[in-house]
């Protein structure tokens, strides 16, 4: 039995979405693991860049923040925020952004601002950072989530970053020319969005996870009719993740004792 952690499974599942030639916007945590895995395993001609302005760093060590010195080393160019955002939305480029969030709704809109009332929040989070911006400008957004009912909600406490907004053509009607939510990768599976309604559906469930578990962990009704079991990570993929992408094991985390729940 091959053993792997949630973060490793999520990084590989998300990494498979990246194609050669994609310009990948990475954040921290699983996001940087996924972006680096994508480049080293699935799409060697993809380019990783950061909102802080580092373009195509060598990433010999995993960055702990998007301003980590490790995003400035071995780059093709070190610039700044304005330059980075000129890349995210550039009409010539296909840009894919990795984000995380505290809450998500069925149209892939994200909350990274607060739980409860905005002015007197029960829990305050970091805020938009560049998330609202990349959700506006990128060709597609892949979001990492812990799959819990309180996080997959009918209504966000605060809509920080726009996905498919209210579904259908509503994103375009806002005046946003491209982009939208491409996929959501959780510790249980991969969710995608219907072509026309833009509603979330279950595309893949991870090995050892039941569809019922995913339905129970989602705070709104979800279509599971197209769900298939996800590929198990191969020993080769895991080896690259552990030995090349995150040799210090800062994000991969310890391998779980039991196979995935």
């Amino acid at each position: 039995m091959i053993r792997y952690s949630d973060n490793e499974m999520m990084a590989l599942a998300a990494g498979r979405f990246i194609k050669d030639g994609d310009i990948v916007f990475a954040g921290t945590g699983v996001s940087i693991l996924a972006a680096t895995a994508a480049k080293r395993i699935f799409a060697p001609k993809a380019v990783i860049f950061f909102e802080t302005g580092g373009i195509d760093p060598s990433l010999d060590e995993i960055p702990m923040a998007v301003a980590d010195l490790r995003v400035m080393a071995g780059t093709s160019l070190n610039s700044g925020l304005i330059e980075a955002f000129s890349i995210v939305g550039h009409r010539k480029l296909h840009t894919v952004a990795f984000l995380g969030a505290a809450q998500i709704d069925r149209y892939g809109n994200l909350n990274t601002t607060c739980i409860g009332d905005y002015f007197r929040p029960k829990t305050r989070f970091s805020g938009s950072g560049g998330a609202c911006d990349v959700a506006t400008f990128a060709s597609g957004v892949i979001t990492f989530m812990q799959h819990e009912k309180r996080r997959f909600v009918e209504k966000l406490d605060y809509l920080t970053s726009v996905g498919w907004y209210e579904g259908g053509d509503s994103r375009k009607e806002l005046g946003l020319r491209r982009g939208g939510a491409l996929a959501v990768v959780t510790n249980l599976g991969v969710l995608r969005f219907h072509e026309e309604t833009k509603e979330m559906y279950l595309a893949e469930y991870f090995p050892g996870v039941t569809i019922e578990k995913i339905v129970e962990s989602t705070g709104f009704p979800i279509d599971t009719s197209m769900a298939v079991e996800a590929e198990t990570p191969t020993p080769g993929e895991l080896q690259i993740l552990r030995e090349e992408v995150d040799p210090q094991r800062l994000i991969c985390q310890a391998v779980l004792e039991t196979p995935q729940k």
């Binding site: 909102e51 700044g80 925020l81 304005i82 955002f85 939305g89 938009s128 950072g129 560049g130 998330a131 609202c132 911006d133 506006t136 400008f137 809509l159 726009v162 907004y165 994103r171 806002l174 005046g175 946003l176 020319r177």
Partner: peptide, 26 residues
């Protein structure tokens, strides 16, 4: 957002009163 704040500093640096963007719609 980050880009909004960066643009606001840029507008200040350029001595213009405001600056447009698509970021923030919705």
């Amino acid at each position: 957002s980050n880009y909004q704040m960066s643009l606001r500093f840029l507008a200040g640096a350029l001595s213009i009163p405001f600056i447009p963007t698509k970021s923030g719609l919705g």
